[in-house]
Amino acid sequence: MIEKVKNIVFQNRFWKSVFRHGMPVNARLRSEAVMSNLFLHIHPVKIYKDSLLFRKTLGLGLISFYLFFILCITGILLMFYYIPHVQRAYQDMKDLEFAVSFGMILRNMHRWGAHSMVALVFLHMCRVFYTAGYRHPREFNWGVGVILFVCTLALSLTGYLLPWDQLAFWAITIVVNLIETMPIIGDDLRYLVVGGTLVGQNALIRFYVMHVMVLPLLVTMLIAVHFWRIRKDGGLARPE
């Protein structure tokens, strides 16, 4: 009976198209499993055992990625209640805090997740730097990583405005005034970023679109490239 059910579940085309290998009991099947699984093939098929040790990497990159994943999920949930309008934005924050079930924990997960992502991405870069992971042949991936770090900061910054409280308003005012001090293009760039001369509705919607659409897409794409390069560059660097 059990055999029969097992057969029906596992011995069909659909199952086999998803899991293209058997139980990874030998080296071949193991490499197949890694090859055919998106989540595992971040590493090359063959890898030094040392590289997998936790203390070699402290898992910083992967944790950063998980945080990004959590931020995406909670961010999408928050978008259901958040309206990027100067008269509604702060009120929606208050709604999440006081009236929506589990609104506060979701918002806090998003917030603390974002803070820790910045920290962890930075620590990840430190780790790569100190283990000389930026050297040939990984210069390109280091570059991608730097861009990812900048994107993380940009995400934090754009998200900072969205609660539309005093803290947000003045922080962004300071930042755009910093932009203004850029030589030659400063004034125009500030005008473009704020969508006017004052931090107002235009700035809010611009930052919102950047925060929920443009930057996350960019980061997702770059993460894909980043992971792909890790694999192509032969996994983690080793002392020569």
């Binding site: 949930l77 259901f80 709604d95 009236a99 929506v100 079930s101 589990f102 609104g103 924990i105 979701l106």
Partner: peptide
């Protein structure tokens, strides 16, 4: 479950 509950508006 919490996320599902979150989607049901209270006000």
């Amino acid at each position: 479950v919490a996320s599902a509950r979150y989607m049901v508006p209270n006000i």
